[in-house]
């Protein structure tokens, strides 16, 4: 059990989670902004999606950049989830017998829901890829026409639910996660604490609102 490697230690794993988590946050920020192009109509949005596949040309061949990005994201999610799962299992083992008298946690809701939030996000990502990248769960998938795919999606009330729920989970997760990452990476200091918390919350709100805008936009007919 005693091993000196970075990954073997709880603090090391935690740092991996922090970095991978932040990578995911960065991607989602970009992703969210990109999604908003949907309000400028099909041409813009599909064009944007198509352009994504041309990034790096001519140096990179068609869609290579996208694949690189996907690889990075995949590694990040795998690292993040593996660490999360391993640490969570360890944490559970560390308290075999619960207290008879329930704890009144002082920690915030976001803090105490990190794990479930994470699980929800994991499931969502799978669903989401099948839906909009692969298309198998999409009501009427048309490759290369993401605008259409998204719009048909959000005609269905329960698909909206899935997305909105996931986005809210994301908001909560990032709200604690961003500050937590700063703590884990030792970036936090008493002097910076409030700022870092504020940035995390802002990020969380921006992501949530930004993402939710799309399904809401479709529902309200702003996008059709």
């Amino acid at each position: 059990m005693r091993s000196r490697t970075f990954w073997a230690s709880t603090v090391g794993k935690k740092a991996v989670m922090a970095v991978s988590g932040l990578v995911l946050v960065l991607f989602l920020l970009a992703h969210m902004l990109g999604n908003l192009k949907i309000f400028f109509g099909a041409a813009d949005f599909d064009g944007y999606a198509a352009w994504l596949r041309t990034i790096g040309e001519p140096v990179l061949h068609n869609a290579w950049y996208l694949w690189i990005q996907r690889a990075v994201l995949l590694i990040a999610v795998i690292a993040h989830v593996t660490a999360a799962v391993q640490l969570s299992a360890r944490d559970r083992r560390a308290r075999p017998v619960r207290y008879a008298h329930g704890q009144r946690p002082k920690a915030t809701f976001a803090t105490s829901t990190m794990r479930w939030g994470g699980v929800i996000l994991a499931l969502f990502i799978v669903w989401h890829l099948l839906d909009l990248s692969v298309g198998v769960v999409n009501p009427d998938f048309a490759a290369g026409r993401p605008y259409h795919d998204v719009v048909v999606d959000f005609q269905v009330w329960w698909i909206n639910l899935i997305y909105i729920a996931a986005v809210l989970a994301l908001g909560l997760h990032v709200n604690h996660g961003f500050w937590s990452a700063a703590q884990t990476l030792g970036i936090n200091r008493p002097s910076r604490d409030r700022t870092i918390k504020a940035v995390g919350t802002t990020l969380a709100i921006v992501l949530t609102v930004g993402f939710v805008a799309v399904p809401v936009g479709v529902m309200t007919g702003l996008v059709s």
């Binding site: 059990m1 709880t10 559970r92």
Partner: peptide
């Protein structure tokens, strides 16, 4: 490094920054 190694070896959980 040594103290964290021992801490882990003693079956304590990890920190999720809960603040309790």
């Amino acid at each position: 490094l040594d103290m964290i190694e021992t801490m882990d070896a003693e079956d304590f959980g990890g920190c999720t920054n809960s603040g309790e």
